[in-house]
Simulated scan of single mutants.
Amino acid sequence: MNPPARDLAQYIANRSHIVVKAAVRAENEQGELLLIQHAEHGHWRIPAGQMRPGEAIEDTAHRELWEETGWTTDHMTLEGLHSGPNLRHLHASGDEEYFVIAMFRAHIVQDSLVESRVNSEAGLKFFDLKSLPRLNDLSRLLLRYSEIE
């Protein structure tokens, strides 16, 4: 007889992991912030993602900007490195991740390619810093660290 999975869970230790991420605070010439809308939840967020093994954190930031927006930038500046108990994600399984996040700042030059994707079905938009939409928790926290909000 096999015991139910919920009974086995009490014998399996929960795991804690440290996850390194890069986030990009990308702005246009007017100082507006680039955000990406989450298709399912409707909230907005800054480009961010997990560092891959063997990858430099700067390369992670460039890759995430490219993967999530289709845009590149010639120059990114490291704005800060954030970690701590506020950057914790608890999974339903009980496992937890503690994030170490490098926050970069980038400048997006608005050309015809940028204009064609902003405000389109791509879910990308520039927002004035005084009128930001509903952000996901991680973006809100990172922007607070950057003193935007």
Rank of each mutant, 00 (worst) to 15 (best):
E115R: 15
L124I: 01
D74E: 14
E147R: 08
D95R: 01
N2M: 14
R117G: 06
Q37I: 10
V100D: 00
F99V: 02
L33H: 00
E55T: 10
F99C: 02
L135K: 06
G70V: 01
S93N: 04
Y11H: 12
D7I: 15
E27G: 06
T60H: 03
E96A: 13
H17T: 11
R15H: 08
R25L: 15
Q37W: 10
P4I: 02
M1W: 07
R6A: 14
R6N: 14
W71A: 10
H41E: 15
E97R: 00
Q30E: 15
D128Q: 15
V109L: 08
V19A: 01
Y98I: 05
Q37G: 12
V24M: 08
H89M: 08
L87P: 02
V100N: 00
W66T: 11
L124D: 01
L34F: 03
R52V: 08
L35T: 03
A61N: 06
L87V: 01
L90V: 05
V24C: 03
T73C: 01
P4D: 07
P47Q: 02
L138C: 06
V118Q: 07
D128M: 15
A23F: 05
A26E: 04
Q37Y: 10
H91L: 14
H82N: 05
I108N: 00
L138H: 05
N14Q: 12
A122Q: 14
R117M: 07
P4N: 01
G84P: 01
G54P: 03
R63D: 03
L113Q: 15
A9R: 07
S120R: 04
F99H: 08
M103L: 14
